[in-house]
């Protein structure tokens, strides 16, 4: 399965990069969102997959029954999802304010700070 996922991840990265390279501010935002999906899925995939065994210790047991999905990458991805959410919300607000301030969503028209 990891093979399929490896290509899904590559596809997501490709889509994200393509969108990042657009001139449109809105499209770039979509690129950023895709980028975080890709990264999260990547962490999940390279930590090796285990079908259907959540890392939850059964009631009364002391230990996780093997095999189980690796809990650590899950925790990392959770943290990363949450952070991406915060970042995304901010980026959206930034895009909104930028559009309101500059009157355009064409990134090529936003070169004033480099002149």
């Amino acid at each position: 399965m990891e093979i399929v996922l490896a290509f899904v991840i590559g596809g997501l990265y490709a889509a994200a990069v393509y969108m990042l390279l657009r001139r449109s501010l809105v499209k770039m935002l979509i690129g950023l969102a895709l980028l975080s999906h890709a990264a999260n899925l990547l962490i999940f995939a390279v930590a090796r997959l285990t079908r259907g065994r959540p890392p939850i210790i059964s009631l009364g047991a002391e230990d996780l029954a093997s095999p189980y999905a690796d809990p650590l990458p899950q925790a990392l991805i959770l943290t990363s999802i949450v952070i991406s959410f915060g970042v995304m919300a901010f980026a959206l607000a930034l895009a909104y304010r930028t559009y309101r301030t500059t009157g355009t969503d064409d990134l090529d028209a936003m070169r004033g700070s480099d002149r």
């Binding site: 999940f44 997959l49 065994r53 899950q74 959770l78 959410f85 959206l92 895009a95 909104y96």
Partner: peptide, 28 residues
């Protein structure tokens, strides 16, 4: 693949993100 917490969080966050996208894109 055995990550119910992740699935739940991702699902909720995704919904929220879509709402935010809609709210903002409305102005763009």
């Amino acid at each position: 693949y055995g990550a119910p917490d992740l699935a739940m969080t991702q699902f909720l966050i995704e919904s929220l993100t879509v709402i935010l996208f809609v709210l903002v894109f409305y102005h763009l």
